[in-house]
């Protein structure tokens, strides 16, 4: 089109390089519409992300004084199960004896607990495979072949440091952010 107009020579300036004002307007309008379309998509998609009230779930305080060695409790953090386990010396020893090279997700017990508090194992009760609650925190539940936790959904077995040892789960049970408020109270979640 531009070349046809160019040949009659009546127009000046923009016609020289074959670009007309109208081409510019076309490109600008379509680009603006494209950007606006994408911008419209953003709230439509982002509304599905966790809302402010879900994100604002405060940190949880847990009194651990009543948990005897060998026992564990199941509680709730961010609407998901949380395991707090008081390891026995044998369980700590069992966890420390495993060479890290044998692990799918290599971490030592010390890395998964607080300094000087190796007997307190705090993890999410969410299997890293597909999110079932593993057994082993409740009294008399099946702790699986490695004495830690056992997920009944797809057979993932965790050891006494809640590290994945067998089955389809790719990672160790997640250790959330937490700190010891005192010797008997822990705060789970980042303090606001």
């Amino acid at each position: 089109m531009a070349t046809v107009e160019h040949s009659n020579g009546a127009h000046s300036a923009g016609v020289e390089d074959g670009v007309r004002r109208r081409d510019f307007i076309n490109i600008a309008a379509v680009s603006a519409a494209g950007v606006a379309g994408l911008a419209t998509l953003y709230p439509l998609l982002n509304q599905m992300n966790p809302s402010a009230d879900v994100l604002a779930l405060a940190s949880t305080e847990i009194d651990i004084s009543a948990i005897k060695p060998g026992q564990a409790v199941k509680t709730i953090f961010r609407k998901q199960p949380l395991f707090v386990r008081h390891l026995t010396p044998q369980e700590i020893q069992a966890a420390n004896q495993v060479p890290l090279s044998e692990l799918r997700d290599p971490q030592s017990l010390a890395e998964r607990t607080k300094p000087g508090k190796a007997q307190w194992l705090v993890t999410m009760g969410v299997c890293t495979h597909l999110g079932c609650v593993p057994l082993g925190a409740g009294e008399g539940e099946n702790r699986g072949p490695f004495g830690g936790y056992f997920c009944p959904c797809h057979g993932s077995a965790y050891d006494t440091a809640a590290r994945i040892r067998r089955g389809p789960a790719p990672k160790n049970l997640e250790v959330p952010d937490y700190s010891f408020k005192s010797d008997t109270v822990i705060t789970v979640g980042k303090a606001a």
Partner: peptide, 28 residues
């Protein structure tokens, strides 16, 4: 939980995708 958990297998963005699908950390 299990089916949306499938999406958490996607490398890097998996957990965010799962939370986006659920609108939270767990079905609610």
């Amino acid at each position: 939980k299990v089916i949306t958990g499938l999406f958490s297998a996607i490398p890097v963005v998996g957990t965010s995708v799962q939370q986006w699908l659920l609108g939270g950390y767990a079905p609610d």
